Amino acid sequence: MPSETPQAEVGPTGCPHRSGPHSAKGSLEKGSPEDKEAKEPLWIRPDAPSRCTWQLGRPASESPHHHTAPAKSPKILPDILKKIGDTPMVRINKIGKKFGLKCELLAKCEFFNAGGSVKDRISLRMIEDAERDGTLKPGDTIIEPTSGNTGIGLALAAAVRGYRCIIVMPEKMSSEKVDVLRALGAEIVRTPTNARFDSPESHVGVAWRLKNEIPNSHILDQYRNASNPLAHYDTTADEILQQCDGKLDMLVASVGTGGTITGIARKLKEKCPGCRIIGVDPEGSILAEPEELNQTEQTTYEVEGIGYDFIPTVLDRTVVDKWFKSNDEEAFTFARMLIAQEGLLCGGSAGSTVAVAVKAAQELQEGQRCVVILPDSVRNYMTKFLSDRWMLQKGFLKEEDLTEKKPWWWHLRVQELGLSAPLTVLPTITCGHTIEILREKGFDQAPVVDEAGVILGMVTLGNMLSSLLAGKVQPSDQVGKVIYKQFKQIRLTDTLGRLSHILEMDHFALVV
């Protein structure tokens, strides 16, 4: 994948999101292997301009796509893939009243899908469409860049269908997702969380590099694949309309690839034109409109599966009536509230959605109805927002919020430890010299600072030695090549209790 991002070429006709291997024109390309080798690009942008032909009021008969309808489940399912879809609609009884809503608040519980998330729908649909058009064949390999849930859905379907599955996901995604993927037989590649989507090191860039190296491999490409919004247009939206008897006044959905909100909203605009569509985008993402909503100094966020630093091709923002931004604290607070007060075992993005819903639905009156999409299960986040310690460490809970008995030293300040200034190293000294210094002084790690004293990161003896043994660096290389740029900081005025929580999850903390 090139470091400079080429513009994806656009073909003359058809839909841009065809499933299957992508040609340089962004659509299915038939021909000899030699032709494909000559024409197939190194990668295709996940934010390529959409060429979708959908228009409100256009006859369904003019759609270029294969459409399906929700099917009634048999008493005995032939395999677990038949437990994807037909998820329950559940009334939220307490939270709406707590925040003064007059309307009825309903939750579409997508964590009841077989793999635990709304992404099971698009995973199965992308595979079925690729099999139907002859792209996927027995023994082929599926590769997908994902925040985890699409990966789980694909790995689940691949396990049943017999495909090899490789999932490329950023490091910030939970260990629970990784464990589930491994249990399903998927191979996992992790990428830096802070890598831009168009960087060769991003999950998108690495996935395309693997595709170019592995024979008979395919990126189904949830960011561009029409099967993504079509899955929701054909099934999720129809289920909502049936469950609500066609009567709903507002739908609120958090947005990642945009397939969920695009597919549902398009069908609702056709069948229930008075329904307002509300999009939820986390602070630090750029999906919301108008652009002024996205202006923030924050560039990272903890909530998973929603928000991006690019506009995915499948996201149709014209069908969203209003956007709201959400933050991590309210997302996790509301997710825990949904679990504790409503018994809905949902993930953090569901918290984002409901946090926005109780604001947006203030305009609705008694007798009206708001539906929220709860995308995934708490299963993926047992060591994250479900953990009091994690919430404390991230600053989303305060010590006084917890009532468990603490040891005698818990409320003492870090400054009472009488710490001395640490050994520091410059980023320009060599790895070999740094190892000598650390061994001589008896230290395992040291902060790396520039000549102005600005902290650049941390270097550890173990990481340097393993990097040297693996051949990633040489003793003569500058130590700046092996620094940890993500590390926890703590102030002298913070409590030892807070430091204790940090050290339970990290090997060190830097006192500043």
Rank of each mutant, 00 (worst) to 15 (best):
V10R: 09
T13L: 09
C15L: 10
G20R: 10
P21F: 02
H22C: 12
H22K: 02
A24D: 08
G26L: 09
L28Q: 10
K30S: 05
S32K: 05
S32R: 10
D35P: 09
K36P: 10
E37L: 14
K39M: 14
K39R: 14
E40V: 06
A48V: 10
S50L: 06
S61N: 02
E62S: 14
S63L: 02
P64T: 02
H65E: 05
H66I: 15
H67N: 02
T68C: 10
S73L: 10
K75I: 06
I76F: 06
P78H: 15
V90Y: 05
R91F: 09
I92Q: 02
N93Y: 06
I95S: 02
G96D: 14
F99V: 05
G100E: 11
E110L: 02
E110R: 06
N113T: 02
A114Q: 11
V118A: 12
R121Q: 02
R121F: 05
I122F: 02
L124I: 02
I127C: 02
A130Q: 02
A130L: 05
E131V: 10
D133L: 14
T135P: 04
L136F: 08
P138A: 06
G139L: 07
G139F: 11
T141W: 15
I143A: 04
P145F: 02
P145V: 04
S147T: 02
T150G: 06
G153C: 05
L156G: 06
A159I: 05
V160S: 09
R164H: 14
C165Y: 06
V168I: 08
A186W: 02
T193N: 11
S202C: 04
S202R: 02
H203R: 06
H203D: 05
G205H: 06
R209N: 10
R209Y: 09
E213S: 06
I214R: 05
S217I: 02
L220C: 06
N225Q: 10
L230F: 09
A231S: 06
T235C: 10
T236Y: 02
A237I: 02
I240G: 02
D245V: 09
D245A: 02
L251C: 07
G256A: 07
G258I: 04
G259T: 02
G259A: 06
I261S: 02
G263P: 05
A265C: 05
K269V: 02
C272F: 11
C275A: 15
C275R: 02
